[in-house]
Design a protein around this nucleic acid. Structure first.
Length: 925
RNA sequence: GCCGGGAUGGCGGAAUUGGUAGACGCGACGGACUCAAAAUCCGUUGUCCGCAAGGACGUGGGGGUUCAAGUCCCCCUCCCGGUACCA
C-alpha cells in the first residue's frame, strides 16, 4: 500500500482555466434554457434514457461512467437535428433510507431529500444536458400516486392478486423478496441468508406474459441480456400426466421426458406439497412430519447444495402409473421443489441422474426403458449412472421400438410419439412449463409506495377508491428495524366501501415497481390527470435508446418489459395511439416494448494495486518458490518461507519484495490461500481477483471520487477520459495516471483554438482536409455504435495532425480553421464546456446547437494508397500506388518492386493474387 | 454442469467482408528547457539476432482450411458474467 501512487495526481497551472469556464457555462446554459425539450411535431424526436440513480448520497465513478457517454450521444443526436429528450430523476424509495433512519435517527424522507439535493448538484457538474424540468422522484407523492394507481389498475384487471406461496423471507431485512432478488440463497443487497416461508402476499401475474417476453422481435438488445432473460424465463416442453392414488387424490406431474414414463418406479413430492398429508399412512406419519419440519428449517442455501446426499422419506402411500397400472411408492424429498412445475415428479432412476442417486440411496427399483443403439441391454444392477443419451425405447407398451434422440420436446420422436399416445388415451397432455414465477411485490417495509388496498372485516380485499389516492406514508413513525406501518393504528384504521371498519394493507411495493414506469413520468412529471400526458407520450414514445448496467438484466429490464405489455393490454396507450395517428405517426408495435435499443456499460473497478503484504510458505525449486500457502496479512507480519510486499503478478507468478531482494513465487493450483477480506475458502482465483481487479469500496481505500477529479482536471477531462480509456461494455480497473492523457488532449484543443495560426503555405491543404473528413466519418460512425474509445482516439489523432500542421505552417488559414472548428464541433458532445468556450469566442450561438459535421466522401477519399506486396503471404515491400490502380498494373508494380527481386530468385512465380490497391501476394514455388 | 462473453506489447485498448497486427493513450527510456523538480517540447519503444542494411519470431495452447488467419473450422486451457437438485 505504501507504494501506491496518489489517486489524484497534482497538476501544474495552465492558461486553460476549466474551473471558471465550466462554472460559467453551466450557469449560462441553465439561464438560456438550452436543454429544455418541448414537443415539436415538425422535428424528428429522439428519446435517450439512462438508468436513474438511487440517491445513496454521492455520485460515484460508476454514475459518471454510465451517464456521460449517454449524454454525449444524446448531444450528438441533437446536433444531427433531432429534438432530443434526455431526462433524469431519482429512484428514491428503498432500504438504505430506512437503515439510515434506524442508525442515525433521520427520517427516510429527510435523508433521501438531502441526498437528492446533493446529487443534483453533482450531476450538474457533469455538464450533462438533462432537462431538469422533467425530473421525477419516485418517493414524491406526486409520483407514487401513480405507482399506486398502476397497482390498482393491475388489481382491477386481475394482474395483481393476493396469493399464498412459499416466499423468500429475509430475517435480516424483516421482509419478503422477489425470486430475482435472491442470489445463491442470499439476499442480493446484504448477502444474508434467506429462508422459505409460506405467506400470503401480493403478486403480479408476470408468468402470463412468459411466452411474449421470450420474443425480442423489433428491439435491438444485446445478446447476453436476451440470453439471460430467456434462461430466467426457462421454457421447457413436455407433458402433464396425472398419477391416481388409492386415497382419491391424483398427483399431477410435469415432465420433459414423457417417453420415460414406463420407467417410473416411484414418485417424489416436495415436502410442502399439499397432498403429502393425505397420502401419508398412519405408521409413517411421525417420520414424515419429522422430515417436513427438518426441511422447513433448512435454509434455501443449504437446500440448494446439489452435492448434498439425497435425503427423503417414504409416505406409505402409492400411486398408479397410468401408462401401465404399476403401483409405485410415493416419497417426499427436498430435491423436489414446490416452486417448480407442480411440486411433484415421477422418478425415472434409469434415465435421470437425481432420481438414480435417490434410488440407490434408498434401494428403489431402477428400470431401464431406453437402450443405447448397438450396446448390450442395460442391466439396472450394473448401472453406475443414469443413461440420458439417445437410443431406442424398450418395455414401453405401445411406443416400444421408437427411436429417441438428444432433441428436446416434440423434435424428439420418442417424446412426440408418447405425447400423441397419452393424448389419444386421455392420460395426459402436452404442456409447457416455465421457470419464471409470478412477481412478488409485497414488502414489509416502510420506505416504499403503499399498496392501496383495504382488508375488510368480512375477509374481502378491496382497492382504495381512485379518488382517495394516494395513500400517503405517515410521517410520525419510529424506526426500530421492522416496518413501522405494521402497528401504526392511525394509518391502519380505515372504513371500507360499505362504511364498516377495516384495516389498511401495511405492505409497500417492491421498489422495482417504481422503476418499471418512470420514463413515462418524465414526459410530464406534474401531470395531474394520469401517470403521463398522452400528448407528450404520443410525440416522445417509445424510448429510442436506453443505457445502463447489465446487472439489471433479469430484474428491472424484465419487469419494465412486462409492465409495458400489461399497460398496453389494459388500454393505457389507446388515447396515445389516436393522437399519434392524428399526427401521421403509425403506432403499430410502439407499445409492445419499452426500449427499442439497449446498451449496457461495464463496471469501473478499483485501481490495480500492488503492495499487499504476503506471507508465503513453500518449497524452492532452485529458481523460484513454489507456494503451498499464501496469506494476505497486515504489513510488517513476518513468518513463513518468505514474507514481503507484492510488486507484481503475472498469472500465477508473484514477485515479492522481501527486504532487499525480489523473489519469484509460483502459486500452485493446490495452494491454500487466506485472504481475510474475502470470507470463505479462498484459492488462487480469489487471490488473483483480490490482487488486481476489485470493486471500489471504502473499506479497500481505493475509491476514486469524481468530485476530486473534477476539481483537479475539470469535468471535460473526466468525461473524455471515461469515454476513452475503456471498452465501454467491459469497463475495467481505474488508472489514475491515464487521465493525464485526456487532460493533455483537452489542453491541446484549448491551445489549438486560442493560439494564433500563421500560414506559410498550402501544400498540406489536401492532406489535412482528407484527415478532417475521414475523422468526421469515423467519429460519427463510432458514436452511433457506442464505441466511444475509438471516437476519442480519432479526435486525438486529428489533434496530432493539427499540431503537426501548425509546426509546418503548411496549410492555408481557411483549411486550418475548418480543421480546428470541425474538431471543436466533433468534440462538443464529449467535452461540452471547453468546446463551447472556444466556439463562443467569435460566435453568438452555442456550439451545441450547431449542425453535426458531415463528411464529404470526395474530400475524404485517398488517391494514393500504400500497397502491400507479399511473397508467399509474407510482407516484403510496400509501394505507393494510385487508389484506382488496375489488377494488371498492380501486379506489374509488385513484380517490379525492388525488394521483391531477391525473393523471386531461385523459384518460379506460380500465382499472383492481386487485390488492388491494398495488396498483391506473389506465390513463388 | 449448463448458457453467454472473453484471452492481442509493461498497461488500457485498435484492427470493414479473412488482406500492412499493435491505431490512440498510459507507462518506460533518451534528449531539450531548468540551479533543481514539476509542467512542457523533441525522439525511441512487440520480442529476439545484427554496428547497420536486414532477418527471424509474434494475437492463451494444439491441429486444420486458405495464396493469405487475431479474424473461419475442430479440440483444449484459463478468465469474467449469469444460472442450476428446473423434473
Amino acid at each position: 500500500m505504501s507504494r501506491q501512487a496518489p489517486l489524484v495526481p497534482s497538476l501544474g497551472m495552465a492558461d486553460y482555466d476549466f474551473r471558471e469556464i465550466e462554472r460559467r457555462w453551466q450557469a449560462q446554459w441553465e439561464t438560456d434554457g438550452l436543454y429544455r425539450s418541448v414537443v415539436d411535431w415538425s422535428k424528428p424526436k429522439h428519446y435517450a434514457l439512462t438508468m436513474l440513480p438511487y440517491p445513496s448520497g454521492d455520485l460515484h465513478m460508476g454514475h459518471w461512467y454510465a451517464m456521460t457517454p449517454s449524454d454525449a450521444r444524446a448531444r450528438m443526436m441533437r446536433m444531427k437535428g433531432y429534438n432530443v429528450l434526455f431526462p433524469m430523476g431519482f429512484d428514491a424509495f428503498g432500504l438504505p433510507a430506512e437503515n439510515a433512519a434506524v442508525q442515525r435517527n433521520i427520517h427516510p424522507a429527510k435523508w433521501t431529500a438531502a441526498n437528492i439535493e446533493r446529487m443534483r448538484g453533482q450531476l450538474r457538474t457533469m455538464g450533462a444536458m438533462f432537462d431538469w424540468q422533467r425530473e421525477a422522484v419516485s418517493s414524491d407523492p406526486s409520483y407514487y400516486t401513480w405507482t399506486e394507481w398502476f397497482f390498482r389498475e393491475m388489481f382491477e384487471h386481475g394482474i395483481a392478486y393476493r396469493g399464498e406461496a412459499m416466499v423468500n423471507w429475509s430475517p435480516t431485512l424483516q421482509t419478503v423478496l422477489a425470486n430475482e432478488q435472491v442470489i445463491d440463497g442470499r439476499d442480493e443487497r446484504t448477502g444474508q441468508p434467506v429462508v422459505q416461508k409460506l405467506m400470503e402476499q401480493w403478486f403480479f401475474a408476470i408468468t402470463r406474459y412468459a411466452e411474449e417476453l421470450l420474443s425480442f422481435e423489433g428491439i435491438d438488445w444485446p445478446d447476453p441480456i436476451r440470453a439471460m432473460q430467456t434462461n430466467w424465463i426457462g421454457r421447457s416442453e413436455g407433458a402433464k400426466v396425472s398419477f391416481p392414488t388409492a386415497r382419491g387424490a391424483s398427483i399431477e406431474i410435469f415432465t420433459t421426458r414423457p417417453d420415460t414414463l414406463w420407467g417410473a418406479t416411484f414418485m417424489v413430492l416436495a415436502p410442502e406439497h399439499p397432498l403429502v398429508d393425505r397420502l401419508t399412512t398412519p405408521d409413517r406419519r411421525e417420520t414424515v412430519d419429522a422430515y417436513r419440519t427438518a426441511a422447513a428449517g433448512r435454509s434455501e442455501l443449504e437446500r440448494m447444495d446439489a452435492d448434498r446426499e439425497k435425503s427423503g422419506v417414504f409416505t406409505g402411500g402409492y400411486a398408479t402409473n397410468p401408462v401401465n397400472g404399476a403401483q409405485i411408492p410415493v416419497w417426499i424429498a427436498d430435491y423436489v421443489l414446490l416452486s417448480y412445475g407442480t411440486g411433484a415428479i415421477m422418478a425415472v432412476p434409469a434415465h435421470d441422474q437425481r432420481d438414480f442417486e435417490f434410488a440407490r440411496a434408498f434401494d428403489l427399483d431402477i428400470l431401464p426403458v431406453i437402450q443405447p443403439d448397438g450396446a448390450p441391454p442395460m442391466v439396472s444392477d450394473d448401472m453406475e449412472e443414469a443413461y440420458v443419451g439417445p437410443g431406442v425405447m424398450v418395455d414401453s407398451g405401445p411406443v416400444t421400438g421408437v427411436v429417441t434422440t438428444d432433441a428436446k420436446g416434440r423434435a424428439n420422436p420418442s417424446i412426440a410419439a408418447t405425447i400423441d399416445w397419452l393424448e389419444a388415451e386421455g392420460l395426459g397432455e402436452e404442456a409447457i412449463n416455465y421457470r419464471l414465477r409470478d412477481w412478488l411485490i409485497s414488502r414489509q417495509r416502510y420506505w416504499g409506495s403503499p399498496i392501496p388496498m383495504i382488508h375488510r372485516s368480512d375477509g374481502v380485499v378491496e382497492p382504495v377508491p381512485e379518488e382517495d389516492l394516494p395513500v400517503i406514508l405517515p410521517e410520525d413513525v419510529e424506526f426500530e428495524g421492522r416496518s413501522p406501518l405494521i402497528d401504526n393504528e392511525a394509518f391502519l384504521a380505515v372504513t371500507d366501501s360499505e362504511g364498516m371498519e377495516a384495516r389498511r394493507e401495511s405492505d409497500t411495493m417492491d421498489t422495482f415497481m417504481c422503476s418499471s414506469w418512470y420514463w413515462f413520468r418524465y414526459l410530464s412529471p406534474d401531470y395531474p390527470s394520469g401517470p403521463f400526458d398522452p400528448e407528450e407520450a404520443a410525440y416522445w414514445l417509445p424510448v429510442d435508446v436506453y443505457t445502463g448496467g447489465a446487472e439489471h438484466a433479469v430484474m428491472h429490464l424484465l419487469y419494465a418489459r412486462f409492465f409495458v405489455k400489461a399497460m398496453r393490454d389494459m388500454g393505457h396507450f389507446d388515447e396515445v395511439a389516436k393522437i399519434m395517428e392524428a399526427h401521421g405517426k403509425d403506432p403499430t408495435g410502439l407499445f409492445d416494448e419499452p426500449f427499442m435499443l439497449l446498451r449496457n456499460q461495464g463496471q469501473i473497478l478499483g485501481e490495480e494495486r500492488v503492495g499487499d503484504h504476503l506471507v508465503i510458505d513453500g518449497v524452492w525449486d532452485g529458481e523460484r518458490l513454489i507456494a503451498a500457502s499464501v496469506t494476505v496479512a497486515e504489513p510488517g507480519t513476518t513468518g513463513g518461507s518468505i514474507s514481503g510486499e507484492l510488486v507484481r503478478r503475472t498469472e500465477n507468478v508473484l514477485q515479492v519484495a522481501t527486504g532487499d531482494r525480489l523473489v519469484a513465487v509460483e502459486v500452485a493450483e493446490s495452494a491454500t490461500v487466506d485472504i481475510p477480506a474475502i470470507p470463505g475458502t479462498n484459492d488462487i482465483t480469489q487471490l488473483r481477483h483480490h490482487l488486481d481487479v476489485q470493486r471500489m469500496s471504502k473499506s479497500k481505500g481505493n475509491v476514486v471520487n469524481p468530485d476530486d477529479l473534477v476539481a483537479a482536471y475539470g469535468a471535460d477531462t473526466v468525461r473524455t477520459y471515461l469515454m476513452f480509456a475503456f471498452e465501454w461494455q467491459k469497463g475495467g480497473p481505474w488508472d489514475s495516471r491515464g487521465i493525464m492523457g485526456a487532460h493533455r488532449f483537452i489542453e491541446d484543443v484549448w491551445k489549438l483554438g486560442t493560439h494564433e495560426y500563421v500560414s506559410q503555405g498550402s501544400d498540406g491543404d489536401d492532406d489535412l482536409r482528407r484527415t478532417v473528413h475521414q475523422t468526421i466519418a469515423k467519429v460519427d460512425e463510432d458514436m452511433q455504435a457506442f464505441k466511444w474509445n475509438t471516437a476519442v482516439a480519432a479526435l486525438m489523432s486529428l489533434r496530432n495532425d493539427l499540431n503537426e500542421a501548425r509546426r509546418q505552417a503548411n496549410v492555408s488559414a481557411a483549411v486550418w480553421t475548418e480543421g480546428v472548428e470541425t474538431l471543436v464541433k466533433l468534440l462538443a458532445p464529449i467535452a461540452p464546456h471547453v468546446t463551447e468556450e472556444l466556439w463562443r469566442r467569435n460566435r453568438a450561438e452555442s456550439v451545441h446547437v450547431q449542425a453535426w459535421p458531415e463528411a464529404d466522401p470526395e474530400v475524404a477519399r485517398e488517391d494514393t494508397i500504400t500497397m502491400v506486396i507479399q511473397v508467399n503471404g509474407k510482407v516484403r515491400d510496400r509501394v505507393d500506388v494510385p487508389a484506382s490502380i488496375s489488377d494488371s498494373d498492380a501486379e506489374a508494380a509488385a513484380l517490379a518492386a525492388e525488394k521483391i527481386q531477391p525473393w523471386l530468385e531461385g523459384g518460379t512465380v506460380r500465382k499472383v493474387i492481386a487485390r488492388p490497391p491494398r495488396l498483391v501476394n506473389i506465390v513463388v514455388g
